[in-house]
Design a protein around this nucleic acid. Sequence first.
DNA 1: TTGAAAGCGCTAACAT
DNA 2: ATGTTAGCGCTTTCAA
Lengths: 393, 393
Amino acid sequence: MKVNGHVCPVELTVLQCAASRHRLSVPNSTSKPDESRPKTRRAGDAPTLADVARAAGVSKMTASLALNGSQNSVRVSAVTRERVMAAAEQLRYRPNPIARALSSKRTNTIGFITTLMGEKPNAYLLEVFGGVIQGAMAAQRTTTVFTLGSWDEAPTRIPAWCDGRVDGIIVLAPRLEDAEEAWLLERTPIVTVHASGNWRMGSVNFEADDEAGAYEMVQRMFALGHRNILHVGGPVGFPSADRRVEGYLRAHAAVGLTPTPVLRVPFNTAGGAEGMEDWLQRHRGQPLPEAVFGGSDAIAVGCMETLEARGLDIPRDISVVSFDHTWLGRTLHMAAVRQPLHEMGQQAVEVLVQLIEASGAEPYAGPRNIVLLPEIVMGRTLAEPHRAPLLIA
Amino acid sequence: MKVNGHVCPVELTVLQCAASRHRLSVPNSTSKPDESRPKTRRAGDAPTLADVARAAGVSKMTASLALNGSQNSVRVSAVTRERVMAAAEQLRYRPNPIARALSSKRTNTIGFITTLMGEKPNAYLLEVFGGVIQGAMAAQRTTTVFTLGSWDEAPTRIPAWCDGRVDGIIVLAPRLEDAEEAWLLERTPIVTVHASGNWRMGSVNFEADDEAGAYEMVQRMFALGHRNILHVGGPVGFPSADRRVEGYLRAHAAVGLTPTPVLRVPFNTAGGAEGMEDWLQRHRGQPLPEAVFGGSDAIAVGCMETLEARGLDIPRDISVVSFDHTWLGRTLHMAAVRQPLHEMGQQAVEVLVQLIEASGAEPYAGPRNIVLLPEIVMGRTLAEPHRAPLLIA
DNA sequence: TTGAAAGCGCTAACAT
DNA sequence: ATGTTAGCGCTTTCAA
């Protein structure tokens, strides 16, 4: 098979253009899950506990006890256990987790609910997700991902996932109202991240102290000598964006400085780039700010783009700092308020596990709202302000 | 509660330092999944099919048939169906997916196996993952993530996950030998991504034509006037890295140019930055390459870092192009060979579903190795070569 | 058109 | 120390 003038090595290879979105369909394949298949037990099927028990010459329950090692010393004699384990080994027995889940009402799986991590991955979300799967691994659980097309679907779809397939769920809630069908949620513990007070009580919420982080960062910049700092914040109505603005303002109030009016843009690179460009054009001839404080990594990167496109050097001519310090910010060595997103994900799992294991007798007694403190990270994009004030071209 | 001089609004709030990794433990919580709980049916439990049937005055199976809508017109009369559905609605009945899975041997879940997406997210991996969950959503399945500490664990842990909890799995295999316990895999369909020939036959593999992509990109650069292109490739032994080098070399051979010897570095930013710095120091006084071709986004970003730190302007003084065009490359508007990672993830799910639904009677008849064609993306980091040749300082 | 009954593979009370 | 028995909630023959 020849493509672009060279030969592909593998015989069965099929080359196709990715952009064509060509469906590789075989004749009778439906995209809907199949609901009907035969289920007579065939010889090739996986061995069950019964097979092991039979092979070891004991009953199913003895086999179960021997294998699960629970009730350690008492229930099963050493020789019996030995025999059972040998049989299991020999048959290559693997317990069926579905059957176990049905019987024990525990799937050992936690759900992670997110909006589509599509073509345009959300760095913030991915960061938390990384923490979640790491936490899940540490807690000996697996993570299943439920994808929401948009947050509008949340009230109807989230309860539908609380149907026993997971022991508990973690919800990343940028902003979320009370679920209408809260009745179902009562059976499935939930931990939210960044659902600042919007979610029903009874669950546990994680958030970062955005306000304090922004306050601290602006103070640091003041200490470096900056006086004219432009804050390009996220959209109005996002609690976290709003709180960052508050921190920015409070820092100014604390030292008696009049803040430059805040710019609000969407939480993405284009938002930062276009907002910045627009702002610069509206302030032509006026002094260039000494620094820009982006409301997120993406916003800050967008701002940098615009500034650099105008020939400005960062941080010589103007400093740029950001919020979050996700992988994007780290890669670019940006100065930022680091929000402990990864830790949030990990700790969310820890708390969720506690919630799951809390029986009626010993209810969860920990905190209901957990606020992590952000930290200031210095980087290559922040320096002392430019000596001679620059004007906006 | 006061922190950093301001008051937190929520009463139950607990502030904690993220870096402390403090365990929020409640007294009797074990991290191991709990194995023992009572299971007598209490009034507050979720309604079952039996409850619905009783409420509707029919048998369980009639209820099941009525609700699942299978055997559409024949089996159940319209009135009965109506009554059953009303009862279900009224009881807020939700079918238990675990029970369904046990009975039907279908979980409608696909597994995604990956190494830890930890603090240092792998852009490549995340890109594919985004495609997978999107594909899964389209196919009405959920995705469960299995995390591998390192690839060494693959041969033992992957088979352990083929125990029925998922209908099939997708494996991102940078390099992977034959699984020793392949016997188990026979029951669970597998689609690999980038497992170029290393994995057992019988599964389906996806890959991109790295060689052709690199060839094409170098040709484009030749067309722009570049003659001295340094390829900073990924580590020796990674099939994809090796094939990119081959494409680079073939492009030179095609036009009769002698290629600059290839540099091989780790697949990350530090690799690119340090490799580049080292190379420049070893070639002091010699002509600066007109362009650098990074073996991945991360490598290219690292190279750019080093070059810009030396005061070089990209692309005026030197062009930089990369491979992959993941989110990092897109954010920075880099010129690159775009590998269709997202599409790979999506299509991997489509094929996996076909594999799952292929019964013994109608086995999967599609291709076993699917090669997607990369495409060239122009960007801000690639321009015509610098007129006056520069020397390495 | 509907019902009764037998699993799916495992866990857990209750005997022995 | 081990076996018996009864579910978990659903699907699916097999009768009626």
